[in-house]
Design a protein around this nucleic acid. Structure first.
Lengths: 219, 219
DNA sequence: ATACATATTTAGGCTTACCTAATTTTATTT
DNA sequence: AAATAAAATTAGGTAAGCCTAAATATGTAT
């Protein structure tokens, strides 16, 4: 059995690895988990003994295959619960993170199977993040930040690279939602702000910080 | 904030009080929680300091009003989750207890409100237990064990006094479910077994242990 | 290469929630 | 009422998961 703390460490190591690649540093983990670095050092040593991760002193940690599977199962649960909260309980996409953080630790294989069924086997969560299957596999899509695109590109908004409430609320307020078509009208060279036409209707000016965090696929 | 352990203690104290009335003894609690009696003594002293319970040395504990409200909110959550598991996820009534024991500790007022709504504001859980409202109130029904009835009584099965999987599975196997009409054909004086006609069709012999745990209302 | 800053680890401590063994209190039997 | 059994408490201890302060490594700038 893996404890609550272990599950949180594994999940965070997985996420940081996805984001930055390679080894995850003690301080990055400490920062993400809001836990003192000394405590993190302590804890990861124990996790290494349990073969959940590999740990090289002063160099950081990496998930073992076992650790990766557990991390993915937590992420799977988190994202399925998020789908449930939004699709069945009518929560907004900026209200669900904390609740899913609790629900993800509920232990019951059968529950998750049935939940998946109940939701119609969704492939993505309300933020466009991919939901791993029971075996930890997922179909990678080729989404990239809108920032990487150029004038004239026609794209579809499929996910966010930033999950903060303030960003999600910004998008809601500006009526930008998953599935929208985003057409790049022009790019201001000075500050990388984008003039974007949304669903062939409204035009909006989006700052660099915004387009950096909008994940889109080419159309 | 109340910890997981505190919530479990409060819930168990509430249940034992309902069952046996008056003060709840250290050993009864220890037994219900599967925790050593010495640990229980320790813990309830701390809970008394926090005014969650009142504690009289060597005499047992009683919930404070605050403790009672917390206990009822846990029970409310537990039972709502059980309804969800059965009505929405198609779990059987003997598969849900452990899962609900985990879900009941998830903290989010809004979640429970929305869950309640999603379920259509149920008044009872899949075992016929009453679901307290947000304020901890519930409409007591007048159900009694079938054992307390006499030959010729026409009743409706509305709840179980025993929640073990083996009892629930016994009922399933014998096609006795909540809402069924149970008519007392005859009672064997020797062993208090009941000849019961179910829904005016099949007749079944039910042992004392069974009829003791079937809660019914008069028709 | 040395000095300095930053990251990491070590050492020692704390709290929560449990444990066992021993003692004391309460209840029951003779 | 004394003896015995059962229940409850006290005392001392443990593991998990965190903390701070001090020491050591690592990386960067001069």
């Amino acid at each position: 059995m893996t404890s609550l703390a272990e599950e949180n460490y594994l999940k965070e190591i997985y996420k940081l690895h996805e984001k930055n690649g390679a080894m995850v540093s003690t301080s990055a983990l400490a920062d993400a988990l809001q836990i003192n670095a000394a405590s993190v050092t302590d804890f990861i040593k124990k996790m290494a003994v349990k073969k959940l991760i590999s740990y090289q002193k002063s160099k950081g940690v990496k998930l073992s295959e076992q650790g990766r599977q557990i991390a993915l199962s937590i992420i799977r649960k988190h994202r399925l619960w998020e789908v449930w909260l939004v699709n069945k309980l009518n929560f907004k996409w900026d209200e669900i993170h904390e609740i899913a953080e609790q629900l993800e630790h509920v232990v019951s294989k059968k529950l998750i199977e049935k939940l998946d069924d109940h939701l119609g086997f969704p492939k993505t969560d309300p933020h466009g993040d991919l939901i791993p299957d029971v075996n930890g596999q997922f179909i990678k899509n080729s989404s990239k930040p809108l920032l990487d695109h150029k004038t004239g590109d026609k794209t579809r908004f499929v996910g966010v690279a930033e999950h903060s409430n303030s960003f999600l609320q910004y998008l809601t307020k500006n009526k930008i939602k998953l599935g929208d078509e985003l057409f790049v009208e022009s790019i201001e060279e000075f500050d990388s702000s984008f003039q974007v036409k949304i669903n062939r209707k409204e035009q909006k000016l989006l700052s660099r910080d915004v387009v950096k965090n909008l994940l889109v696929i080419d159309l």
